[in-house]
Design a protein around this nucleic acid. Sequence first.
DNA 1: AGACAATAATTGCATACGCAGATACTTGCA
DNA 2: TGCAAGTATCTGCGTATGCAATTATTGTCT
Lengths: 153, 153
Amino acid sequence: MSRTPDPALLGLAQGWCALSALHGRIEAHIERALQAAHGLSVREFSVLDVLSRQHNGEGGHLRMNEVAEAVVLSQSATTRLVNRLEDRGLLTRYLCLTDRRGIYTDVTEAGLALLGEARPTNDTALREALREASKREELAPLVAAVESLAPVS
Amino acid sequence: MSRTPDPALLGLAQGWCALSALHGRIEAHIERALQAAHGLSVREFSVLDVLSRQHNGEGGHLRMNEVAEAVVLSQSATTRLVNRLEDRGLLTRYLCLTDRRGIYTDVTEAGLALLGEARPTNDTALREALREASKREELAPLVAAVESLAPVS
DNA sequence: AGACAATAATTGCATACGCAGATACTTGCA
DNA sequence: TGCAAGTATCTGCGTATGCAATTATTGTCT
């Protein structure tokens, strides 16, 4: 009845399961920390972080759809997320001059300040979540993989 | 102005970012496939999968809160998720006889059948998503880590 | 037994999400 | 110029989520 069709495939499924579980645990933990301390959701923090990085080098600013892809969110959700941050004065919108379909965003001083405050909270919560997850047998190897991702360079 | 306080910490943040992005991409891809082919969400599939495994050995059935932890979901969301599956006739609820606070669930024949149909869809979509993600430089190492998670054993 | 804390599950509420359709702008081609 | 196709963003709608409060059951202590 219940056969094991493909061992390699079973491994893949387990890997995905572990990835999903680890992601869920970390996200929940950081979400609570950021929300309690700064009234920011994980995604809001993530967007501010991405936008602040792109602005740093004064290279090319990101269009809405590029932001959406960077944080893996639908375009509609990105629109509303940016709306929220704009309403709170954390960033500003402005149209692209050469193509008025495109919309750019700048993180304001207030946004950068909040981001700066929130970053330690985020990092601490991340470390805690990883430490907690590494206690679970099925998650430990993935935790190790994440920790060894960008070691030096 | 913008200093780099702790390189190790930066690595952690990048690792978490990659983990998050990879998870989001895989989930979105599988979600579309499962939804289109079987009207199942990723989480619904996940719950059916977990429950069917636990029932196999006829070991101990899972309580609601154990299910919630297994799929990393709040208890309220789990209640409603199980409600949906029960309404569709994919599983049944029954009270634990020795502790009437606890509630157990059995996957029905229909549930097992649907799960069996959906599993190949899930696996195929997972492979596609991983293959796609491995093309992205920042995700490739994590993809490799996931793929090498449960190789043999 | 009776009171009180602890545990399991559910429900009310506000919010964020994705999909599909609508709107605004640009580009290409006649 | 004028019109069709393509691209970027936003809006309407239904649904899933988490938190906090609620209900039901069990265990403990006197």
